[in-house]
Amino acid sequence: MVLTLSICAKKARYVSEADALLAIAKATITLRHYACDRCGEFHLTSRTKGKRIARPVTD
């Protein structure tokens, strides 16, 4: 199986999950992050259909 990075080249990449979460916090739309199986970094998506959205942590 050949994994191409051409798809990833068009997307913003975040080296760490923390970096991706910071970008989500600054966004004006609902986003979620995911680890990419091609490049090993994190990307963001606005697609949430069928995906469980984590609830904010409250103390």
Rank of each mutant, 00 (worst) to 15 (best):
M1E: 11
M1N: 10
V2M: 03
L3K: 14
L3E: 13
T4A: 02
T4W: 01
T4Q: 02
L5D: 08
S6R: 07
I7C: 02
A9T: 12
A9K: 13
K10A: 12
K11G: 00
K11H: 10
K11E: 14
A12T: 14
A12G: 10
A12W: 04
R13W: 05
Y14H: 08
Y14A: 01
Y14D: 00
A18H: 05
D19Q: 11
A20N: 01
A20V: 02
A20H: 00
L21P: 01
A23K: 08
A25P: 11
A25K: 15
I29N: 10
I29F: 11
I29H: 11
T30G: 03
L31T: 06
L31V: 07
R32N: 13
R32S: 14
R32H: 13
H33F: 05
Y34N: 01
A35S: 09
A35R: 11
A35M: 07
C36M: 06
C39F: 03
G40L: 05
E41K: 15
F42P: 01
F42V: 05
F42G: 00
H43N: 03
H43I: 02
L44E: 00
L44F: 03
L44P: 06
L44T: 01
T45A: 02
T45K: 00
T45D: 03
T48F: 06
K49F: 12
K49I: 11
K49L: 13
G50W: 07
G50F: 07
G50T: 04
I53H: 05
A54S: 15
A54I: 07
R55K: 15
V57Q: 09
